[in-house]
Design a protein around this nucleic acid. Structure first.
Length: 422
RNA sequence: GUGAGUGUAGUUCAAUUGGUUAGAGCUCUGGAUUGUGGUUCCAGCCGUUGGGGGUUCGAGUCCCCUCACUCACCCCA
């Protein structure tokens, strides 16, 4: 092979593409049913959007951005969907709309990380954003949607929730935590020594036993929430309980990006299909402060899920069932000449009536063509030969039962036969 | 970015301590069957052994470089 694929990328080809296509349509449908509207930001973005929102100290901004060579501006491939969307949505007119407050997307995202199971450099995220200040119904609806998608594809999972406070209580807590961790620095692993300054909450996520000991003895964010945040968190838990959604309060859920506040949550895969990248969906509540990029302050709640991770988590038999939907209703077999003309006429009629149908591109060798119809999973085959044509009829073969009958060339008769067969 | 492992037909895997012409199942193509698919039987196609360099009389096998994949760290979806 002259050219190797670019690392961390892949092409969507049959049969993977068939399932992907179906999955995308199903996810979109689920969002639509809850009143969410489709949106998608540009792939090319100014780097500032990500620096301002997810933090210039985050790994994503520091080392995972794909830069585009361009003569003037600093352009990157989007590393995330929420920030670019918020930049656009922060326009006053859209914000003031009482109709357009809930959005969903299904889009490509780029991050220059070392690929591994469930992690790519060019990949898809699906997700949603619900704009507005904290409201347990809003946060609950978003969480419920995440769960609905996972349930739709029969993915085994658990929901972890936490609150990381707001701009009132978060800052004092973080300062407090930093002070504590600095004192305990000698008892932390090398990674965590670094994290104390860059992202102290992340220390809670460390797998190292020594670090766990330090965090378990240190200040907890849930004990340091302001009254507002405390009430909001309790409200959300009530809502989830009332709706029968199981959850685990997990102080280790901290989210990596700067813009999060209050409710944060993760859906984690529990079937052992994902390896170490087991987060299926990550999300929470966020606040974008007004500046040159975000035209007005904007708050909301949303989540993002990795499509490739979702696909990896879906049981094989479930995948198979979804792809079978792409079978063919009718395959038309002809023998050239007049029989072909009649076939084309029929084909047009069938398609205009919403029946998924194809005609053979070659003629004769009926055993080959039936074999092809079989592989295409055609439910019926219409055979148009000289015999049939001379009688003004066609043969309709039911591929499941092998039964075949001659019927007149007439759309209504044909539709009736197909209906009976179902 | 760091570490470890892997790379052989379309695919799943073979190939003795380095030894002749790199094999097999499935898939695919053709035939048995030129108007009847799935089953069966027969036949056939398919490889620069990821790429490049080196050691050797001889390399799929050993060494170096490179690329890709896999797993983990890190980070996150």
């Amino acid at each position: 092979m002259a050219f190797e694929k670019i690392r961390g990328t892949y092409d969507l080809l049959p049969e993977d593409s068939l399932f992907f296509y179906k999955l995308k349509k199903d996810i979109e449908k689920i969002f639509e049913l809850s009143g969410f509207y489709y949106v998608e930001s540009a792939i090319l973005q100014p780097v500032e959007i990500f620096k301002r929102s997810i933090g210039s100290e985050s790994d994503i901004v520091k080392k995972e951005m794909f830069e585009v060579v361009s003569n003037s501006q600093s352009i990157v491939l989007k590393a995330e969907e929420t920030a670019p969307l918020m930049a656009g949505l922060s326009e006053k007119k859209i914000l003031e709309s009482s109709v357009f407050t809930k959005f969903f997307y299904f889009t490509k995202v780029f991050r220059h990380e070392r690929p591994q199971k469930g992690r790519f450099r060019e990949f898809y995220q699906y997700g949603c954003e619900s704009i507005g200040d904290f409201n347990k119904f809003m946060d609950g609806e978003v969480i419920e949607l995440g769960k609905r998608i996972l349930n739709h594809f029969k993915v085994s999972h658990s929901l972890h929730i936490n609150s990381i406070g707001c701009n009132v209580c978060r800052k004092p807590y973080l300062d407090n935590l930093k002070d504590y961790l600095r004192k305990e620095k000698d008892n932390l692993c090398d990674d965590c020594k670094r994290r104390v300054e860059t992202n102290p909450l992340r220390v809670f996520d460390c797998k190292n036993e020594k670090c766990k000991k330090v965090t378990s003895a240190g200040p907890k964010i849930l004990d340091n929430l302001c009254d507002d945040c405390k009430n909001d968190f309790e409200g959300l838990k009530d809502f989830l309980n009332i709706n029968g959604i199981d959850f685990i309060v997990d102080p280790n859920i901290v989210r990596g990006l700067d813009y999060y506040e209050k409710s944060v949550f993760e859906f984690v895969e529990t079937g052992g299909k994902l390896g170490s990248q087991s987060t299926l969906i990550g999300g929470g509540r966020y606040r974008y402060k007004k500046d040159e990029i975000f035209k007005n302050e904007i708050t909301g709640v949303g989540f993002a899920g990795g499509v490739e991770r979702l696909i990896l988590s879906i049981p094989e038999d479930v995948k198979k069932n979804f792809v079978d939907f792409s079978s063919l209703d009718i395959f038309i077999v002809h023998f050239g000449g007049e029989t072909f003309k009649k076939g084309v006429e029929l084909l047009k009629m069938l398609r205009e009536n919403g029946i998924k149908s194809e005609i053979s591109f070659s003629e004769g060798r009926i055993n080959k063509l039936l074999s092809l119809a079989s592989k295409k999973k055609a439910k019926y085959v219409i055979i148009i030969g000289e015999d049939e044509l001379s009688k003004g009829k066609i043969s309709l073969k039911d591929m499941k039962t092998s039964l075949q009958k001659e019927i007149s060339i007439n759309l209504e008769d044909l539709l009736k036969e197909i209906k009976n067969g179902d």
